[in-house]
C-alpha cells in the first residue's frame, strides 16, 4: 500500500505522452497559410500596399503566437504539471507583451494602417480558433464523427 508520502504530488507529476498542442498549432498554421492570400487581398483592396503590409504583419504575429504557445506548453508538460501552470499564466503575459511591443514598435511606420492591423489581429485569432475547434470537437470529444477518407470508409 502506498503512503501519502510515497505518492507523487500532482504538481511534480508530468505528462510524457505526445504533445497535442503542437499538432493543433500545426493545423492552425496550415489553415492560416491557406487563408492568408485572401486576407492579404482584402487588405490590398481596402487600404493599398499599407493594408497589405499591415494584414501580413498581423497574421504573422498571430501565427507566431500560436506556435510559441504550443511549444511552451508542450515543453512545460514534459517537465511537470506545476511548471505547466506557471508557463500557462506567465506565457500568456509574455506573449501578450510581445504582441504589444511588436505592434507599438511599428505603429508609426508608413506601411502600417491601424484598422486592418487591429482587425486582422482579432479576426485571424478568433477565426483560426473556431476553425480548429470545429475539427477538434468532432475528432476528440466525439471520435465517431472524425472525418474519414474515402479509403477508410
Amino acid at each position: 500500500m502506498t503512503t501519502a508520502a510515497a505518492r507523487p504530488s500532482v504538481l511534480t507529476s508530468r505528462d510524457l505522452g505526445p504533445a497535442p498542442e503542437r499538432q493543433v498549432a500545426r493545423d492552425i498554421l496550415r489553415n492560416g497559410l491557406f487563408a492568408l492570400p485572401v486576407a492579404l487581398l482584402i487588405g490590398f483592396i481596402g487600404w493599398g500596399t499599407s493594408g497589405l503590409g499591415s494584414v501580413g504583419f498581423a497574421a504573422g504575429l498571430i501565427l507566431a503566437n500560436f506556435w510559441l504557445a504550443a511549444v511552451l506548453l508542450g515543453w512545460a508538460a514534459r517537465i511537470s504539471l506545476g511548471l505547466l501552470m506557471g508557463v500557462s499564466l506567465f506565457g500568456f503575459l509574455i506573449r501578450i507583451g510581445l504582441i504589444s511591443v511588436a505592434v507599438l514598435a511599428v505603429r508609426d511606420q508608413a506601411w502600417v494602417e491601424p484598422v486592418p492591423l487591429g482587425v486582422t489581429l482579432v479576426v485571424a485569432h478568433l477565426g483560426l480558433l473556431f476553425w480548429e475547434t470545429r475539427f477538434v470537437s468532432a475528432s476528440l470529444a466525439f471520435p465517431g464523427l472524425k472525418p474519414t477518407t474515402s479509403e477508410e470508409s
Binding site: 505528462d15 504533445a19 497535442p20 498542442e21 493543433v24 498549432a25 500560436f66 504557445a69 504550443a70 506548453l73 508538460a77 500557462s88 500568456f92 506573449r95 501578450i96 504582441i99 504589444s100 505592434v103 487591429g118 482587425v119 489581429l121 482579432v122 485569432h125 478568433l126 480558433l129 480548429e132 475547434t133 477538434v136 476528440l140
Partner: peptide, 20 residues
C-alpha cells in the same frame, strides 16, 4: 491538454481584443 490549449487561446482573445 488539447481542450486546455484551445481554451487558453480563446481566453487570450479577450486580452487581444482589449489591446486592439
Amino acid at each position: 491538454r488539447t481542450t486546455m490549449f484551445l481554451g487558453i487561446a480563446f481566453v487570450e482573445a479577450l486580452a487581444l481584443i482589449g489591446f486592439v
